[in-house]
C-alpha cells in the first residue's frame, strides 16, 4: 500500500496531478519516470523523510511496493538511531 505522503513526493517530482499507484507499479509504466527522474525522486524521498539510502539498497528496487517497504524500514532505523 503506497502512502499518500510517498505518493505526493513522487507526483511532485514527476509534475503529475495524480496517478493510480499500486505495489506492483513499475517505474517504466509511469509517465516521465525514467532513469534520470528516478534519482531525483530518490533524493526527494530522502529529503522528505530525513533518511539516507545506500546504493545497494536502491539497485534492487523493482516496484513501488519495494520502495515503500524500503522507506518504512529506513524511517524505522532512523527513529531507532535517534532514540538511542
Amino acid at each position: 500500500m503506497i502512502t499518500e505522503r510517498l505518493k505526493k513526493v513522487i507526483l511532485g517530482e514527476l509534475n503529475l496531478d495524480d496517478y493510480y499507484f499500486q505495489d506492483s507499479t513499475t517505474a517504466n509504466l509511469v509517465p516521465g519516470w525514467d532513469s534520470l527522474k528516478h534519482i531525483a525522486i530518490l533524493a526527494s524521498i530522502e529529503k522528505e523523510y530525513g533518511i539516507r539510502f545506500k546504493s545497494l539498497e536502491v539497485i534492487r528496487l523493482k516496484n513501488l511496493g519495494q520502495l515503500q517497504e524500503l522507506v518504512a524500514r529506513k524511517v524505522e532505523e532512523e527513529s531507532e538511531r535517534k532514540g538511542e
Partner: peptide
Amino acid sequence: IRDYVFTPMTFAARHRPKTV
C-alpha cells in the same frame, strides 16, 4: 548499463543534480 553503471554513479552524485 542503467542499473549497474548509470544508477550507482548518479545516485552517488544525487545531491549535485546538474551533473546528471
